[in-house]
Amino acid sequence: MAEQRQSSGQSAAEMRSRIREDGLMPLLEHLGELRRRLFWTILVLVVGLCIGLYYAKPLYNFVITDGPMNGVDLHTFSLWDGIGMYMKFAFLISLVLVLPFGFYQLWAFVKPALSPKEQKATLKYIPFALMMFLIGLAFAYFVIAPMAFEFTTSVSRSLGLIETYGVMQYIQFLFNILIPISLLFELPLVIMFLTKLRILNPIRLRRMRRVAYFVMVLIGTIITPPDVISDVTVAIPLLILYEISIFLSSSVYKRQQAADAAWERDFDAGSAVNES
């Protein structure tokens, strides 16, 4: 009896150890896979920075020549301003390059949990991620940035201030508008992707509408000049983006519900045939 108890105790301990190991191994494998995906994304970001450094000056010339600061002298107040300007434009170019690659790495990470049909459907989002980012970049540059610059300069002139602009102050001002707006334009694709993974659904998004509206208006207020017209001009497109996200999520959710209903009908029909 003592030997049986000892052997049963050992087998239970071995079983518990095996369960812990079985649960730990997939977690370690997922963490290793995630680390590998992050490594490749960071590597592409670094390569993109190197490419961006080469194209930073042409992009800078375009922004200065065709942007709101056309005809305005820019000054440097630090020995590092030129280098900082190069790095900011290099980062923007790198972000354009790494964004679709990062979406692909995210898709590849969750791919094993998706069916073949879901894999093909979610893979199609990657080219649209770059397209939406570029649309947001154009909207921020051609609509929001000139409006913000006109407001700030008009306030300075009304106070009788002499306009002396530093190049880094202007680039920082510009990038504080471009980057947030461009990333917010990814919202519909992100919501569709999460809906496809069954993490989000239109019902939950509608319940979050008040909070989402508040966040959108807050973002629009932060990145624009403190006047009602500018706030409304930015907040309305962001709210429209959220409503588009709900609409796209609904379309994905309806197709999922229809597929689930069809699978249940086929399963019930198969069960009825087997019983007969």
Rank of each mutant, 00 (worst) to 15 (best):
M1P: 14
A2Q: 07
E3C: 03
S7K: 15
S11C: 03
S11V: 10
A13N: 08
R16P: 07
E21H: 12
E21V: 08
D22P: 07
G23L: 15
E33Y: 02
R36I: 13
R37D: 06
W40C: 08
L53Y: 14
K57T: 09
P58S: 01
N61T: 02
N61M: 05
I64F: 00
I64M: 11
D66P: 01
D66M: 13
G67H: 11
N70M: 09
D73F: 08
L74P: 06
T76I: 02
F77N: 02
L79N: 09
D81L: 00
Y86G: 00
M87R: 07
A90K: 06
L95A: 13
L97D: 06
V98T: 13
L99H: 01
F109N: 03
A113N: 10
T122H: 14
K124N: 12
Y125D: 04
I126F: 08
I126E: 02
M132F: 15
F133S: 00
I135T: 08
A140E: 08
A140G: 14
E150W: 03
F151N: 09
T152P: 05
S154K: 10
S154D: 15
S156M: 15
R157M: 14
S158G: 15
S158E: 07
I162Q: 11
M168R: 05
Y170M: 08
Y170W: 05
L174K: 06
I177G: 03
L178S: 04
S182T: 12
F185K: 02
E186G: 05
P188L: 01
L189C: 03
V190A: 13
F193R: 12
R198N: 02
P202G: 00
R209V: 13
Y213K: 09
F214K: 05
M216E: 10
M216C: 15
D227Y: 02
S230R: 08
D231C: 05
V232L: 14
A235C: 10
I236G: 05
P237V: 13
E243R: 06
E243Q: 12
F247L: 14
S249R: 07
S250Y: 09
S251P: 02
R255W: 02
Q257V: 09
A258M: 10
A259W: 02
W263F: 13
F267Y: 04
A269Y: 03
S271H: 04
A272S: 10
